[in-house]
């Protein structure tokens, strides 16, 4: 057995370190990592924004959120596999993908609304723990159902369903040289989608009547109710929309080179979404956007740093993400844009 000293020496290799730092600060590497980070951030944002809206309005920490993304990935995967043959062109594939995302958004929004009315509504008056427990149970059931269905159809439930992941069009799988940086097309696609979703959600919140109800309900649900507005309807809508958005994020994960449809998404996505919403401040739209960018870029930078020579310790990128969560909670429990009095005493 090797001792502590010698095992640590394995981690840090001096000439390699200098070399890696040299490569790190080359503008093309940095630019590539930044754009990839933004691509990741876009998907994290699409998934996490529903979680933060649900918490902001109802105070429910939705532990089934990852399962909704998983459902989106699987159902989307089925539709893509059915609709795309090896001869389908890239343009058709992307159009089909957008159609699939829209269908899944509608389906899962309805599903989420039904879930809210049927299961979550009866327990609003209980302590937050029971809502955590209930949604976690729902997530567990969804994950197991996915396992049963996939293995019944002869698909490996984990690690990933490659048939669905490989429907990615050549246009998005290829790398493009932009300002000297070598960027995978998928990330640009994700950034565009993320920006679109961000604008849409922002417009919904600030430019529509229901958005107004939701923002008011997040401030003071009782007061909104006293003004004669059926805040329960807003609850249902927000829970539905959150579910739908998580599922759309799941659809994007199908083509994401680091994910792909698998039942593992349930927990993986859930934990990352938690990190994003907690850092941004639970219930804050702006915070979630900022935190998604922070987490996405950190993820991309640290993944590169810890896989490419400086410190060959692949887990450190995840460690960094969770440390971000811990440090945020220690220094600023309410998150970047959260409301002061939640969290601490």
């Amino acid at each position: 057995m090797i001792g502590f000293g010698s095992s640590l020496a394995v981690f840090v290799d001096a000439p390699l370190l200098v070399d890696a730092f040299g490569r790190f600060f080359q503008p093309d590497t940095l630019a590539r990592l930044l754009v990839e980070g933004l691509g990741k951030a876009a998907i994290y944002f699409i998934i996490a924004v529903g979680l933060t809206l649900v918490f902001g309005l109802m105070g429910v920490l939705n532990f089934a959120h990852g399962a909704f993304a998983m459902l989106g990935a699987y159902i989307g995967g089925v539709l893509l596999v059915v609709g795309i043959s090896s001869t389908t062109g890239s343009g058709v594939r992307i159009l089909l993908f957008i159609a699939v995302a829209a269908v899944i958004f509608a389906l899962l929004t309805a599903f989420g609304s039904a879930l809210e009315v049927g299961l979550v509504r009866p327990i609003y008056d209980r302590t937050p723990m029971y809502q955590i427990l209930l949604t976690f149970g729902v997530g567990l059931i969804l994950e197991e159902t996915a396992r049963i269905l996939t293995s019944a159809r002869g698909i490996q439930p984990e690690p990933t369903w490659t048939a669905a992941a490989s429907t990615i069009p050549a246009v998005l799988d290829a790398r493009y040289s932009i300002l000297g940086a070598n960027i995978r097309g998928f990330y640009l696609f994700a950034i565009a989608a993320g920006a679109l979703v961000a604008v849409a959600v922002w417009a919904f919140l600030t430019r529509t009547l229901y958005g107004l109800y939701i923002r008011a309900g997040s401030e003071d649900a009782e007061m909104v109710e006293a003004l004669g507005i059926d805040v329960r309807k807003a609850f249902t809508i927000v829970f539905g929309l959150g579910t739908g958005l998580a599922a759309v994020g799941g659809v994007f994960l199908i083509w994401d080179p680091t994910y792909g449809p698998s039942v593992l998404l349930n927990i993986d996505v859930l934990l990352y979404a938690f990190v994003v919403v907690v850092i941004g401040g639970l219930g804050s739209f702006k915070g979630t956007l900022a935190a998604a960018v922070i987490v996405g870029v950190t993820d991309s930078l640290t993944t590169w740093l810890f896989n490419t020579g400086i410190v060959p310790f692949p887990g450190l990128s995840e460690v960094t993400i969770f440390l971000l969560l811990v440090i945020t909670l220690v220094i600023r429990p309410q998150g970047l844009y959260g409301i002061e009095e939640v969290g601490g005493h």
Partner: peptide, 19 residues
Amino acid sequence: LSGVYFAMITLGFAQVAYE
């Protein structure tokens, strides 16, 4: 911290240890 935030920070510590 308390409530949901306590649950989150302990979860964060455990995930760091796990990774």
